[in-house]
Design a binder for these strands. Structure first.
Lengths: 251, 251
DNA sequence: GCTAGTGTACTGGTCTGACCAGTAGGCTAC
DNA sequence: GTAGCCTACTGGTCAGACCAGTACACTAGC
């Protein structure tokens, strides 16, 4: 590539960013593990030789990234947090709002990820995990009859058990995040549905069919049934013009 | 729900959080659109009746969430940014590090999402999009012969064109984010591979096969070929014990 | 002895006021 | 008309102060 040194544009790096970087490295490098505490702000300002404002701005950034949490009065400093998908959830939620993701896109994403999860679960699940899934479906059936308000939560539990059984943490987290967004979007509309009971019955039948395929080890069938079930469940809430994009996954 | 009002736990809400909330709502509600500027910090401290420290902490949080950017000396205040997947990328990267995602999980995720993208693209693509994909593959072939260092970038361009043609922004963004993480993880190992040239040739053959299936409108075939191609490309870098999880997607 | 209450020395959250380097844009001198 | 300066801002940083709250050692009462 053409001679001469290629200079990179330098951006002024602010003091609080350097603080963020150092703490971030310490956490990702394992020098600071979840549960441990940072020094107090006044101690940090000595260690970094910056003012407390700078320290505090750095802490706000770290907190926004979900790495630490500070609590007033804590004699120790800010606590290092274990990873949680909360910030991933947050950024994906604003993505959904700001980038104007349609319900159809979100549901389509769920159809892809959840069906992949069950395909994997069908092949890789342990006996223990299968048992958990069966119990979750059982609880779903019970919820439909006894406490319809708990139906949504029970449904989430089933899908989460399947996602866990897929053996892929990333799939598990992403299905969780997107699911909660979708659920939130359609929650009120479903609650108002006059045929809510019929919907629940059909949903349970679908879950049982998928479970049967899962037990039989037929991953592709389970995945196909799940996509179909999800389509049936959400199609009514999706704009007519976008429904074809969902049907493209039904083969 | 047994009688009596159900009180929700109140968490002390800090001043800067209220500022963040209000600005966030204004942005998500469309009152503030990308390109517009917030009032200056000193003006904001009057409007919110808080001190500048509080305003600044709020701005740091908003900045960490990728919603605004402030530039020293700007006579206007902080600029409202258009959405970018940067923060999603950031949180997923720390997820990969802190939650200890293995390369296998990341590749598996790519196999799922990219194959879903091409399945959708096969059915929903426009002629224009098909042309873009063909051109990207053509550029890939050229890169392999003329400028091997550009091969990686050309490969990215192909996958991105396919993701765009899927018609699902969420798929597009997620494939992009995860791809860049995977690429970074294996970059040096691939660069050191003595058989790099052979790898590129095989990769091009795979791309062409997938493209042929895409042109023929055979989405499932294209998806299957893509998963196989991706498996072949990455299998060597994945721990032996985890390879079976990847093979579970090859049916 | 042990417990219940008090004190105290911290913590984080917020405020005030100040300084600096830098930008933008009007103004002036040419 | 233009090139240069000047001023009035901006954000970044610092210093020092106060408050409400927590944790923990200490003390008074049993």
């Amino acid at each position: 590539m053409g001679g001469g040194p290629r200079f990179e544009p330098v951006r002024a790096v602010r003091a609080y960013e350097r603080v963020v970087e150092q703490v971030e490295e310490a956490i990702e490098g394992g020098d600071l593990t979840p549960g441990q505490h940072l020094p107090s702000e006044r101690e940090l300002m000595v260690q970094f030789s910056v003012s407390r404002s700078t320290i505090r701005e750095a802490l706000r950034v770290l907190q926004a990234r979900g790495l630490v949490r500070s609590r007033p009065g804590d004699p120790n400093g800010a606590e290092v947090l274990p990873f949680s998908p909360a910030t991933l959830h947050k950024s994906m939620t604003t993505l959904a709002r700001v980038a104007e993701l349609s319900l159809a896109e979100l549901v389509q994403f769920r159809m892809v990820l959840d069906s992949a999860a069950i395909l994997l679960a069908a092949r890789l699940r342990t006996e223990e995990q299968l048992r958990e899934i069966c119990e979750a479906v059982e609880a779903l059936r019970a919820a439909a009859e006894e406490d319809p308000r708990g139906f949504g939560a029970a449904d989430v539990a089933v899908h989460d058990a399947v996602a866990r059984a897929s053996g892929n943490k990333l799939i598990q987290i992403c299905t969780d995040v997107v699911r909660s967004i979708v659920v939130k979007l359609v929650a009120e509309r479903i609650a108002d549905d006059p045929d809510r009971r019929a919907l629940m019955r059909r949903s349970i039948r679908h879950h049982e069919e998928v479970l049967a395929a899962l037990r039989a080890g037929d991953g592709p069938l389970a995945a196909r049934l799940l996509r179909k079930a999800m389509y049936d469940y959400y199609a009514d809430y999706v704009d007519e013009s976008e429904r074809s994009a969902l049907r493209a996954l039904l083969e």
